[in-house]
């Protein structure tokens, strides 16, 4: 069984993610320690918080170059959740303009509320997964997942594995690029469908060569 680390950078709902993994039979390490992270086979980057604060916290822990080496160069699988997904992009417009990890070309922009559209986009929404979206194997096409966000990801179509409709917004619900996976929704908080998705990620990790 491979070792999973939940990256603890002071931002995420790390315990919720660890609880979900525990139900699936994995004891994840919650840490920001480079040695412990280096010894792990795959990462989960959760996130509840503000973009700038999250990048500051990653920077303070010297995790930006570290994660680049582990994920982009060494090819270890990573799953970003919610803010964790947004951090993978080049930049975000949340409370100013901030640079992200830049692994995926694109940006994070605000959703604008109007008379019919309330922001944040919070609650359970159904998704449409593209063919070959491996995180969604065995998950019904119209399954519901729990979203809670005010900003959304705009990027090239080739990175997007799943979309979701909110008012006039066609939101990026999930990303997949080589060994980099991400969801805007919270699989750890989406009951059985979410747990299935996490199981798919863990299966990918188990079969992944490195």
């Amino acid at each position: 069984m491979k070792k999973i680390a939940i990256i603890d950078y002071g931002m995420g709902n790390v315990q919720s993610v660890a609880n979900a993994l525990e139900l699936l039979g994995y004891t994840a390490t919650i840490t920001d320690n480079h040695d412990l992270l280096k010894a792990s086979d795959a990462y989960i980057l959760p996130g509840v918080g503000a973009f700038a604060e999250a990048m500051n916290n990653l920077r303070a822990r010297h995790l930006i170059p570290f994660l680049h080496t582990q994920v982009i160069e060494a090819g270890k699988p990573i799953l970003g959740i919610c803010l964790g997904m947004q951090l993978f992009l080049k930049s975000s417009e949340e409370m100013g303009l901030h640079e992200g990890l830049g692994w995926i070309e694109g940006k994070v922009i605000a959703m604008t509320p109007d008379s019919t559209l309330r922001v944040p986009h919070v609650g359970w929404n159904d998704i449409v997964a593209k063919e070959g979206a491996s995180l969604f194997a065995g998950v019904d096409q119209d399954a519901h997942f729990y979203f809670d966000h005010s900003y959304h990801v705009v990027c090239e179509e080739r990175y997007i594995s799943t979309k979701c409709q909110y008012g006039s917004y066609e939101l990026t619900a999930a990303l997949q690029y080589k060994n980099v996976f991400a969801t805007q929704f919270h699989p750890e908080k989406s009951q059985t469908k979410g747990l299935k998705l996490l199981r798919n990620f863990l299966n990918f990790v188990e079969e992944h060569p490195c």
């Binding site: 002071g10 709902n13 790390v14 315990q15 609880n19 979900a20 919270h186 908080k189 747990l195």
Partner: peptide, 25 residues
């Protein structure tokens, strides 16, 4: 495994941090 909101006597950012670290969303 659904979102959990918690409340009662919260007065500081530190407390929010602890609660989220404990499993609140």
């Amino acid at each position: 495994f659904v979102p959990l909101s918690v409340g009662g006597g919260i007065t500081s950012v530190d407390q929010i941090h602890t609660l989220i670290h404990s499993g609140a969303d």
